[in-house]
């Protein structure tokens, strides 16, 4: 049932950023909302759960985006490795650090986009594109990242409580 929760969270975030956000111009500078989800999985879940979710999210985002194949998968994987490395010597469950790590994830993903665009041969204008998009996204990430992770954590707790109660009732009836 835990996987069901991850799937619903992933579904909500992807549908929100591909179908709802384009209709809200005020939020047009928002970052990739799957970065906080990935960070949540890195901090609070097991390595196995995080890696399976990472692969799924990477493939889905590569499918839905016009980016070169493997861009999101690579960005998420490198982000995951960096987070695991930082977690080996820092307590990353701290809210301030969470905000900084989400912002780092945004910068990392933008660097991957920049790398792919640069390799495709379009060198003109990408520097200005970074200047246009990255600061807004970093600001959004610092302001909202910790809240998304706290929200996911409390929702997962409630989900686990409800599902465990449901299965306990079923087994008692059986």
């Amino acid at each position: 049932m835990r996987w069901m929760f991850y799937f619903i969270a992933c579904l909500f975030l992807i549908v929100f950023q591909t179908s709802v956000l384009p209709l809200l111009p005020i939020l047009s500078g928002l970052y990739d909302l799957l970065i906080p989800l990935l960070l949540y999985l890195c901090i609070f879940r097991t390595t196995r759960e995080a890696i399976i979710a990472l692969l799924f999210l990477g493939v889905v985002m590569d499918n839905l985006s016009g980016a070169p194949a493997g861009l999101y998968l690579s960005a998420y994987f490198v982000f995951y490795v960096c987070v695991i490395w930082v977690a080996s010597f820092l307590n990353i469950a701290n809210k301030l650090l969470i905000a900084l790590i989400v912002a780092f994830g945004v910068v990392l993903e933008n660097l991957f986009h920049w790398f792919a665009v640069y390799l495709s041969g379009d060198h003109a204008g990408i520097f200005f594109k970074i200047l246009n998009t990255a600061p807004d996204q970093i600001l959004w990430a610092i302001c909202t990242g910790p809240f998304i992770i706290i929200g996911l954590h409390s929702l997962q707790d409630k989900w686990d409580y409800i599902t465990s109660g449901f299965f306990a009732e079923k087994s008692a009836e059986g």
Binding site: I14, V15, Q17, D32, L64, S65, A67, T133
Partner: peptide, 8 residues
């Protein structure tokens, strides 16, 4: 739906 990134 639209592209999730602002680069593509």
């Amino acid at each position: 739906g639209k592209d999730p990134s602002q680069w593509y």
